[in-house]
């Protein structure tokens, strides 16, 4: 019984961990908390709707392409001009950008949610002992772990990854030794976009519709996950996101019925408490810009 909740919680936790990772990567490179990150997932959702009739590989590639382009445009048009400003100005810029994209989607796709035809092949349930595990959960966990491994390899072994990590440690020093910050930041946005696209596919696979406001709750979770996990630390971000998803699922399952509607209130109260005890997050990065 309880084990079933844990399985579900691991599924949600993995998805949230991925979400948080995409946000945290950009933050660690340029100190930007990108509120518009959730809108990338929303854009991914709408491209899935547009591509729904295509074969599965076309949906995956197409969505990744669209979201990565959107992510790059975001960096070039909105964030590059304010890069030198304070963290707060950048935060509010991303806030405005998020609002802009959200309302643009409302103008383009209408105020009502667009129905999304279900991917029935994902809802297959496997029975293990007395546990039910859906194919969706397995895919989410496998994809999340693979992405994290791939990201680790990329950061440790490739040239651009090493440059990224150098910029994470000390942007000015990295620039002094000849790392081109424009290229590094753009590549962080590309990776963040790929992750957002994958998140949108995993997220909307379980939803019945996509709406202009779909991105809002996602970015809130990622945002909070990144901050409680520890800003600037990739491991911390993944952990923070995972804990958000894990706690959310367990609170919804285990709270007494009359309190269950307040699950979000409990979750965010826990968030405030965590922040008060550890203002720089569970795993504080060295020299994090908080």
């Amino acid at each position: 019984m309880y084990l079933q909740y844990v399985v579900d919680a691991i599924g949600t936790g993995s998805l949230y961990a991925l979400m948080t990772l995409g946000l945290a990567l950009v933050f660690s490179v340029m100190g930007l908390m990108n509120f518009a990150y959730g809108q990338l997932v929303m854009i991914g959702g709408f491209s899935i709707i547009m591509l729904r009739q295509q074969p599965w590989w076309a949906i995956i590639l197409g969505t990744i392409l669209v979201v990565v382009i959107a992510s790059l445009l975001m960096e070039r048009l909105a964030f590059r001009p304010v890069r030198a400003a304070t963290a707060m100005t950048m935060l509010i810029t991303s806030f405005a950008l998020a609002q802009f994209l959200q309302q643009a989607a409302r103008v383009a796709f209408g105020a009502n949610p667009r129905p999304l035809e279900q991917f029935s092949e994902l809802s297959v349930q496997y029975v293990v002992g007395d546990l039910f595990i859906s194919r969706q959960t397995i895919i989410t966990v496998v994809v999340a772990i693979s992405i994290m491994l791939a990201l680790t390899l990329l950061l440790k072994k490739t040239n651009i990854g090493i440059q990224l990590r150098a910029s994470t440690e000390d942007v000015d020093m990295a620039r002094l030794v000849g790392i081109k910050s424009n290229r590094v930041i753009a590549s962080a946005f590309v990776i963040s976009g790929v992750i957002a696209a994958i998140v949108s596919m995993l997220f909307f696979a379980t939803r019945t519709n996509v709406s202009w406001s779909s991105g809002e709750s996602i970015v809130l979770i990622a945002f909070v996950g990144a901050v409680i996990g520890g800003l600037g630390s990739m491991v911390g971000a993944a952990l923070g996101g995972f804990l958000m998803g894990f706690a959310y699922t367990l609170l919804n399952a285990l709270l007494p019925l009359e309190l269950r509607v307040f699950a979000d209130a409990f979750l965010y109260t826990i968030v405030i408490v965590v922040l008060l005890i550890r203002p720089s997050g569970l795993i504080a990065a060295k020299g994090a810009r908080v």
Binding site: M33, V227, L231, V271, L275, P279, V290
Partner: peptide, 10 residues
């Protein structure tokens, strides 16, 4: 900083 932003948002 950001912690304050997040906490007030929470």
């Amino acid at each position: 900083g950001l912690s304050a932003g997040i906490a007030t948002l929470a």
